[in-house]
C-alpha cells in the first residue's frame, strides 16, 4: 500500500486509477449519490416547466422522467410567462443592469489596486485596511440613506438604471480592489521597475503593462460580480421602477401569486437561470479563481 504513491504511476492495473492511486468504491458511490441529489431539484424544475398545467397537477415531476411518453410536453408555460409577466422586457432590463454594473467598477478599482500595489504613500496600510473592513459591512446600511439621497427629494434617480449601476459599482468596489491588488502583488515587480526606469509614467505602466497582465483577475471578479448583480433581489426591488425591473424581481412577484400561476413560476425560474448558467459553465475557471482569491462580500 504505502509504496504505491512513491513509485512511478502505473497504467491500467485492476483497482487502480490511471495515475496509480487506488480506486475507492466508497467515494465513487457517495459522490454519485451526492451529485444526483444536488441536481435533482433543478432537474425537477426544468422538467415541470415543460409540462402542461393539468399534467403537472396530476403527478409529480419524477413521473415525467420515469415515463416521458405518458407526459404532455409543451412550450406553453414559456409562451405565457413571456406574455403575462413581461419576461422579455425584464430579461433585457437584467442585461442592461448587469453588464455596466459588472464592468464599470473594474475600471475604477484597477487604478486603486495599482496604487496599492506599486506605489508607496502615507496611510497606505490604513486605507487598505478600510477596504478589508468595508467588505464585511452589510450593504443594508446603504438602503435608507440612499433611498433618501436618490429619491424624489434628492437626485431623483431612484427607479432608474443609474441608481442601480451606482449602487452595484459602490458595493462591488472594495472586493474588486482587494482581488485585483492581491493578484497584482503576485506580478513580477521587475517589469514595472524597468518600465519606470525607461521613463514610462504611472499611467502608461498601468495601461500598457499592469492592466493587460491583470486580465485574469479582472475576469474572475467580473464573473462573480455578474452573478451577484444578476441574482440580486433586494437592490433591484428597492431601486428599480416596475418597468425597469429585473427577471429576479418578476420571479419573486410570481412566487407571491402561487395558486393560479404555478406552471408559470417554473418557466420563469428557468428563464432567470439561463444566463447565469451559461456564464457559470463558460467561465467556471475564472469563478473558481475569483473565489479562491478571498471573495468575502458584505
Amino acid at each position: 500500500m504505502s509504496t504505491t504513491t512513491t513509485t512511478a504511476p502505473r497504467a491500467g492495473g485492476r483497482g487502480r486509477l490511471k495515475d496509480g492511486r487506488p480506486r475507492s468504491p466508497v467515494s465513487m458511490v457517495t459522490m454519485l449519490v451526492l451529485a444526483v441529489l444536488w441536481t435533482l431539484p433543478t432537474l425537477g424544475l426544468l422538467v415541470t416547466s415543460f409540462r402542461s398545467r393539468d399534467d403537472a397537477l396530476n403527478s409529480g415531476w419524477w413521473s415525467a422522467i420515469v415515463n416521458p411518453f405518458g407526459t404532455s410536453w409543451t412550450f406553453d408555460n414559456y409562451r405565457r410567462v413571456f406574455e403575462m409577466s413581461d419576461m422579455g422586457n425584464a430579461f433585457l432590463n437584467g442585461v442592461v443592469v448587469a453588464v455596466p454594473a459588472t464592468i464599470i467598477p473594474i475600471m475604477f478599482a484597477a487604478f486603486a489596486a495599482y496604487a496599492f500595489t506599486f506605489l508607496d504613500f502615507r496611510f497606505k496600510e490604513t486605507l487598505f485596511i478600510t477596504i478589508v473592513a468595508v467588505m464585511v459591512v452589510p450593504i443594508h446600511v446603504a438602503f435608507q440613506p440612499l433611498l433618501n439621497l436618490f429619491g424624489p427629494n434628492g437626485l431623483g434617480i431612484a427607479g432608474q438604471y443609474l441608481a442601480v449601476w451606482l449602487l452595484h459599482t459602490g458595493f462591488g468596489m472594495p472586493l474588486c480592489i482587494y482581488v485585483l491588488r492581491n493578484y497584482m502583488s503576485s506580478l513580477p515587480f521587475s517589469v514595472v521597475e524597468s518600465a519606470r526606469i525607461d521613463g514610462c509614467t504611472n499611467f502608461q505602466i498601468f495601461w500598457k503593462l499592469v492592466a493587460p497582465m491583470a486580465m485574469p483577475a479582472m475576469a474572475a471578479f467580473a464573473t462573480l460580480q455578474f452573478l451577484w448583480v444578476w441574482n440580486d433581489l433586494l437592490i433591484a426591488k428597492l431601486f428599480l421602477a416596475n418597468d425597469n425591473t429585473t427577471v429576479i424581481v418578476k420571479l419573486q412577484q410570481l412566487l407571491g401569486t402561487q395558486g393560479q400561476g404555478a406552471e408559470l413560476l417554473t418557466a420563469g425560474a428557468f428563464i432567470s437561470m439561463v444566463l447565469p448558467m451559461i456564464v457559470f459553465f463558460v467561465l467556471q475557471n475564472f469563478l473558481v479563481r475569483g473565489m479562491t482569491s478571498g471573495a468575502v462580500k458584505g
Binding site: 441536481t39 433543478t42 424544475l45 415541470t48 441574482n231 412566487l255 417554473t266 432567470s272 447565469p276 456564464v279
Partner: peptide, 17 residues
C-alpha cells in the same frame, strides 16, 4: 452548479419540487 442560481430561483425550485 447551484452557485449560479439566485436565492429566489432556488426558492422556486425547492417549493415546486
Amino acid at each position: 452548479m447551484p452557485m449560479a442560481i439566485s436565492f429566489v430561483a432556488a426558492s422556486a425550485i425547492w417549493l415546486t419540487t
